[in-house]
Amino acid sequence: MKVILVGGDKTLYFLCRNFTSKGYEVVVINREQKEAVQLSRQLSAVVLCGDGSDPEILAEAGARSADAILAITPNDQDNLIICQLASLQFGVPRCVALANDPDNAEIFEMLGVTAFSTTDIVGSLIEQRASLEQITNLLPISGGKVNVTEIVLDNKSPVIGQSLKDIRLPEGTLIGVLIRDNQPIIPRGATQLLDGDHIVLITLPDSHGPALKALLGDTE
């Protein structure tokens, strides 16, 4: 997998470190010479200094053979144009843009570029976590049409000791995976739920609340 990252700052640094540790081939494009030099010293990735929305720099970064490009600069206009050029001129299959202004996430999608807004994601995470302490992770997919939620069962849960096939969950709910003692388990009907289990739950907006209630009990 070859990934091009455009931008700078800690987000890029940690993202890049994460990707290289998975064995991805990463090329970083950063505009500021000083920062580019520093990144090239810290990261085991190729770092180019230049404007990511310049087709020559994209070509130099090997956009033609890249599997994905991620544009996470602080300027929305740059992120949009980088992704559009990468897709139109270089045929990069997956181009993802950061929308700093959350309104732009929808606009970018309308203009044909996959986009995400950290404000939206972090906002909903904090809201969900603040409202329910058993929820440890929440990932809204396609603008919240599907939610992937990680919850922890405690001894107050009404489903402790029950097998999955005996638990009544609302329509539009799926238990994707269980994590018990740090070991992932793909659940089957006979799998019993225990205190301390982490459940990765996939829900539709209508079933989200009822599913949490069924698994965690009344938490009010």
Binding site: D76, Q77, L80, I81, L111
Partner: peptide
């Protein structure tokens, strides 16, 4: 003076 701003605004 910024090409990318112009291109984004024009598309929007």
């Amino acid at each position: 003076h910024d090409d990318n701003v112009n291109l984004m605004v024009a598309q929007v």
